[in-house]
Write a protein that binds this DNA or RNA. Structure first.
Lengths: 158, 158
DNA sequence: CGAGATATGTCAGGGTTCTGACATAGACGA
DNA sequence: TCGTCTATGTCAGAACCCTGACATATCTCG
């Protein structure tokens, strides 16, 4: 046994993973600056586009931030007229958010830019390897109990 | 052409990448709490172990934080007696840091725990796929100009 | 030799996110 | 029915990290 009880930075998957995540974050940050969106703000809009009616807590989990942080994001976007939320909850406490036409337009622009970044990121990989990379990363997340587990600051399910 | 101008969260490499990075961060955070180390602190110690004599700025780049943040980390670790730095620079302004015996012992313990996490993370992958995952992530970083490029907050080379 | 470029360490300030806590709303089981 | 548990939204406070700026130390080139 004895699978090296130590980590070599040069070949460590974890270290390389962090490096890639940082690089991606930086690239998205730069790309979103022209449209005046932060990464969490973009993530919020993108989530709402693909799954309309998500609540604050659900968006928080999907964007990997706390409810409190997402709450601030939602307020900011709402003030800018990019999304709407009912002032009162029809059921429970959750207030489902939805994109406005303005928000939809802005998202379209931002999403196109971000998609280009992702394409650039994986351009040197074969389509097969692109897919495997995504699959393997998902396996890694699951192995760490990432989505359905404990910390991070995500709660259970989406 | 026209490689989908939009991103699907379920199959997006970028989204999955972020998810995995967050999960890893959370797992490391939890694992390092017993030894009273934050992730940046651990990263600093690990870097110093593998490349003794690194300066503050070099450590900052290696740990993906700014010089200012790493400066605080170094001070904290120095106060705890885990590393030493010459009070005066023998050349230039850089003051090379080195682990103390205490720091080395604590790092050994922490490193073992972190290595276990990394192992758990990639356990479901074949050794071949583990290696390819690391290689592909490195390609992604390079494609984004991650290490030698522009933002993030890394400067040139290490 | 001296001006400019690069890199380092550090101080000050601000912003973003998190942790902790509380009240409310629905689900479930004794 | 009522207590318990879970989930949500929100307020307050603190911690962390970054941006901006400045002085210093080398190196390079005219």
């Amino acid at each position: 046994m004895a699978q090296e009880a130590r980590v070599d930075l040069e070949t460590s998957v974890g270290y390389t993973l962090k490096q890639a995540a940082i690089a991606l974050r930086g690239a998205m940050d730069a790309a979103l600056r022209p449209v005046n969106l932060s990464v969490p703000q973009y993530a919020c809009l993108e989530l709402l586009d693909q799954r309309p009616g998500l609540s604050n807590a659900e968006l928080a989990r999907g964007a990997f931030v706390t409810r409190q942080s997402m709450n601030l994001v939602l307020r900011g976007l709402q003030e800018r007229g990019l999304l709407t939320r009912p002032t009162t909850a029809s059921q429970g406490r959750a207030r489902p958010a939805e994109l406005t036409a303005t928000g939809q337009h802005l998202l379209n622009e931002a999403s196109r830019t971000v998609a280009q970044i992702e394409q650039r990121m994986i351009a040197s990989l074969t389509p097969q390897n692109q897919h495997r990379l995504q699959q393997d990363l998902a396996k890694c997340t699951e192995a760490l109990g990432g989505t359905t587990g404990s910390k991070a600051p995500n709660g259970p399910h989406l």
